[in-house]
């Protein structure tokens, strides 16, 4: 059973933002998460996470000047965990319907308040059998696409029995997709080598 980690609070066709139930525990960068829209399961890759004040007008203030340990701050100000929240962004990279996984965007975005689960290893393995989602990732806008891609592949490699073979296969796919962008290719390859 996969772990429920949060809830969708903002959704669009290309991705969704979810809030974590636990402060400071977003899923790792590049991990595969799943949410639903009715009977359609929507898969996403975590591409960004942030922790900030619930009220955008009230920024947190520094409180630990006289404390020796960080944890004491939260112990002494228990309200903090209610005033702050951790959210993460995911890129939609595929969906599943009737037990079939498709590596392209879902017809509709998830509903707000849909639950978000962190995928288990065998689900990750099933989803990453095909590497078609890489082109969606590489074409996404944002600052650290390459970091996300390499993080995603590194994590997915743990789900496969032969992690190296998976990475070589993924690397070859990248080499084709990034045929004209050798520097990007080299940067990603250096980040995923074992």
């Amino acid at each position: 059973m996969s772990t429920k980690i949060g809830e969708v609070i903002e959704a669009s066709t290309g991705g969704f933002v979810a809030e974590c139930y636990e402060l400071h525990t977003p899923p790792p960068l590049g991990s595969v998460v799943r949410t639903t829209d009715g009977d359609v399961e929507i898969y996403g890759i975590v591409c960004n996470a942030s922790t900030e004040s619930i009220d955008p007008g009230r920024r947190p203030v520094a409180r630990g000047k006289d404390e020796s340990e960080e944890e004491n701050i939260y112990r002494q100000h228990p309200q903090l965990s209610r005033l702050l929240r951790t959210t993460f962004e995911s890129l939609a990279i595929g969906h599943g319907q009737e037990n079939e996984i498709r590596h392209y965007l879902p017809p509709r975005p998830p509903r707000v308040h849909s639950f978000v689960y962190l995928c288990e290893q065998d689900e990750v393995r099933r989803f990453t059998q095909s590497l078609d989602f890489l082109s969606i990732l590489l074409n996404s806008k944002g600052g650290s696409v390459d970091e996300m891609v390499s993080a995603c592949l590194r994590q997915a490699s743990h789900a496969h029995d032969d992690g190296r073979a998976f990475l070589v296969r993924a690397g070859k796919e990248l080499a084709v997709l990034l045929g004209g962008e050798l520097n990007r290719l080299n940067a990603i390859l250096r980040r995923i080598r074992l």
Binding site: K172, A175, V176, G179, L182, N186, L189, R190, R193
Partner: peptide
């Protein structure tokens, strides 16, 4: 696949990179 490869060859000393590049780039 790309002329640039002949000018700035990838780090083929790394067996992983060498394996990925072979047959693709």
């Amino acid at each position: 696949i790309n002329q640039q490869l002949t000018i700035t060859p990838p780090d083929v000393a790394d067996p992983f990179i060498a394996e990925v590049i072979t047959g693709t780039s």
